Simulated scan of single mutants.
Amino acid sequence: MDTGSMCTVERRGRVHLITITGAGEHRLGLPLISALRSGVAAARASPGAGALVLAAEGKYFSNGFDQAWARTVPLHLQMSMSEGFRGLLADLLALPMPTVAAVTGHASAAGCALALAHDSVVMRGSRGFLYMSEVDAGIKIVDYFGEVLRQKVPDAATRRDMVLAGSKMTAAEAVRRGVVDAAADGGVDDVVAAAVAAAEGLAARGWDGEVVAEIRKAMWPAVWGKVKDYGAEAAAAARPRL
C-alpha cells in the first residue's frame, strides 16, 4: 500500500510496518499526518495484523511540525495541523494491537512526541537523537505534548532537561534514562529489523487487541483525555448512521 507516496505500508508476518519515505526531514504537515493516519487505519483494518511498527527512511525519523508552512497560512490552518496530529496520537492510543517506534534518525519536537506515543521505542544507536526543540525555537509547547512527556519520560530531571534545557538525547542516554527500550546497532534497516522483531514477539502473545487498547488508555489517562475527541474512534462515532 502506498499512502500518497509519503508513506508505504507493508506486512511482515503479523507486523504492519509503516515507513515514512524519502530523504527529507519528514516534517509533520497536513499531508504527512493524513498519510500516517491512513496507514494506522489500514493496520486496524488488516486481518491477522498483531502489531504495528512506524519507521522512516533517511537521516530523520521526523523533524517535527512543518513550521515553515505554518508561518505562511492563517491561524485556523495552523490549528488544523496540530489537531490532525492530536488525532494521529489518538489513533495510536486506541489501536487494538501493540505499537513499536523504530526511531531510525533524529526525532525532534512533534517527531519526538510521535515516537514516545508508541508502546515501546527502538532507537538507532549510532545516529540520531531525541530533541524537544521548542525552548530553542521560542515556541510554546502544545498541551498534549506535555502530557505525553509526563507519562512516557519517567524521571523528572530528564523531562526538565528535555523540555527546559533543549537537551539532545542520544540512544545510549535514552536507554539509560528509561526513555526508550532499546538501542540497535547498524543502519536504518537494522533498526527496523530490531523493531519488527520486537513487535513480532508482542504479536505472538496473542493478546485481545481491544483489551490492549483499553489498558493503554487506562495506563495513560491524561494523554488519552486530551486526544480522544480527535481520533478515528471519535470520528466514527460522530458519523451519521444511515
Rank of each mutant, 00 (worst) to 15 (best):
K217R: 15
E25W: 15
A234I: 05
R11P: 02
L116R: 04
A90L: 02
K217A: 13
V103N: 00
A70M: 14
D136S: 10
V142E: 15
D190L: 02
K140H: 13
F85K: 11
A137E: 14
G146V: 12
G166M: 14
V135F: 08
T21Q: 13
H106D: 07
M219E: 13
F61K: 05
D136L: 13
M162W: 11
L30K: 07
V223Y: 02
L88G: 05
E200T: 11
W224P: 00
Q78D: 12
D208S: 09
L36H: 03
P74W: 05
G231Q: 00
M132S: 06
T158P: 03
D2E: 14
A184S: 07
V163N: 08
P221V: 03
E10R: 15
F145D: 10
D185F: 01
S108R: 15
S34T: 12
G111M: 11
G187W: 07
A182V: 04
A172S: 14
K217C: 09
R124A: 00
S38Y: 04
L77H: 12
L36W: 01
F65L: 06
S34C: 04
A204N: 12
C7W: 00
A56C: 11
R27S: 04
G201V: 03
L54P: 02
W224E: 03
P221F: 04
G166W: 15
G186T: 00
A41I: 07
A51W: 05
W220D: 07
R14D: 15
S80Y: 07
G125Q: 00
V180R: 01
A51Y: 03
H16P: 08
P47G: 13
L54G: 01
Y144E: 07
H26D: 11
G166A: 15
D229C: 05
A35T: 05
D189M: 06
R86M: 11
V227F: 03
V9M: 01
A115K: 00
V9C: 02
A197F: 03
A235H: 08
A194M: 04
W220S: 09
R150P: 03
F145N: 08
K226E: 12
D155W: 11
E147P: 01
G105T: 00
L114V: 02
K152T: 06
E233H: 10
V192I: 15
M132G: 02
D91K: 06
Y60T: 08
H16K: 09
S167M: 15
A184T: 01
S120T: 15
F129M: 07
G84L: 04
V135H: 09
T170A: 03
P96A: 10
A183Q: 00
D155Y: 12
V15G: 02
A199P: 01
G231K: 00
L242E: 13
M6L: 13
A171S: 10
A213T: 09
G138V: 14
E210M: 11
V227N: 01
V135Q: 12
I20F: 02
R176N: 12
H106Y: 12
V163W: 03
A115T: 05
